[in-house]
Computed example of a mutant assay.
Amino acid sequence: MVLSVLLNIIFPPPPSLFVSAMSLISFVSLANAGFSEIKGKHLNYSKFWNSNTTPQKQIKLSSKSGMLLLYTPAFLAAAASFWVFPHEGIRSTLLQGAVTIHFFKRVFEVLFVHKYSGAMLLDSALPISLSYFLSSATMVYAQHLTQGLPEPRIDLLYPGVALFLVGIVGNFYHHYLLSNLRGKGEKEYKIPKGGLFEFVICPHYLFEIIGFVGVSFISQTLYPISFTVGTTFYLMGRSYATRRWYLSKFEDFPKDVKAIFPFVF
């Protein structure tokens, strides 16, 4: 039953060992990273940049440099895809555009929106950067392999565009609210207010998930779906750890504020 429904909404899996392997690897590695966050083993960036490590023995980057390292290769890969795979139809063009806009927004935020208080370890930055780069390139390549295949019976292209836009705008708005928490020169953390921060501590993660669901709907191929499900598990784990961190640091943190899904989790 599930397989029958799935075959109605996605393109037939391409005969590509690389894409099939990446679909499995992305899901397993991201889901495992999410469970690791819950267990207290964090990826070393943001407020957890020096968790579970001996920073004096690691190469430390400024947060801004580290974040640029995370997102720039993926943005360049997505942007270059317009030259590598030009004019392959509206679905492919929208997919390429969505991935490019997603990572361009991240680079833009690093340069002009975010305010930083910590650092990032190179040992964490490199695998995350590689993961984003491969994910960006694989999404585009998986779409390229659908050329000549029949369209899925259920067309989710334009609902996907709508969800992507909701995700990208909601994510940016809540990043903007976070940046406004600190005045010039301030580095301490504060309890976020405004928007969906009244209900969850990581609404920017919620909108990131919505955006990737949109990308999956635009693409309707196996790899973005696997990446989105894995990313959902990871961001659930990261948001759970973030909420636990706020509870430990702020006695007045509101207990009814959830991690990522309002009223639920």
Rank of each mutant, 00 (worst) to 15 (best):
P127F: 05
G89K: 00
F75E: 08
P12W: 00
M22H: 08
I90W: 09
W83S: 06
E88H: 14
I10H: 04
N44A: 08
S51P: 00
G118F: 11
S29W: 10
K105R: 14
V84C: 05
Y45P: 03
G118P: 03
E109A: 06
S46E: 14
A33G: 13
K47L: 12
K39A: 14
Y45T: 03
R91D: 09
A77R: 08
P15R: 11
Y116S: 03
G40R: 03
L94F: 15
P73V: 15
F82Q: 05
K41E: 14
N52H: 03
M22N: 12
K41W: 07
S65T: 14
F112G: 04
I59H: 06
I38W: 02
I59Q: 01
Q58W: 02
V84A: 09
L126Q: 03
T93V: 08
F108L: 13
K60R: 11
V84H: 02
F48N: 00
V110P: 01
A79I: 15
V19L: 13
V107P: 08
F85V: 08
F75C: 07
A79W: 06
P127S: 08
K115A: 00
S51W: 15
V28I: 13
R106H: 10
E88S: 10
N44F: 15
T53E: 04
V84I: 15
P86W: 10
G118Y: 10
P127K: 03
Y45K: 00
F103P: 04
M22L: 14
F11K: 00
V110S: 05
E37M: 15
A31H: 11
G66I: 09
K47R: 13
G118L: 09
I25L: 12
F27E: 12
G40D: 05
I38N: 01
F104Q: 09
E37T: 02
T100L: 13
T72I: 13
P86T: 06
K60C: 10
A77V: 12
T72E: 04
K60T: 12
M67I: 01
V110A: 13
A98G: 08
G89A: 09
W83K: 00
P73R: 08
L95E: 13
L111P: 05
I9Q: 02
F112R: 07
A125M: 09
F35V: 13
H42T: 10
V28K: 00
F27W: 13
L111C: 15
V107E: 09
L61H: 06
A78Q: 08
S51L: 09
K39P: 01
S81V: 01
F18W: 07
F108G: 07
R91S: 13
M22W: 12
S46A: 15
Y45A: 01
H114M: 06
S92Y: 12
K105N: 10
S65G: 14
V84K: 11
F103C: 07
L94Q: 00
S29H: 11
H42N: 04
L70D: 03
M22D: 02
Y71W: 09
M120C: 04
L121N: 08
F27Y: 14
D123W: 13
V84T: 07
L122G: 06
L95M: 13
S29P: 08
G118M: 10
S23T: 14
S124L: 04
L70M: 14
G34A: 12
I90L: 15
L69E: 02
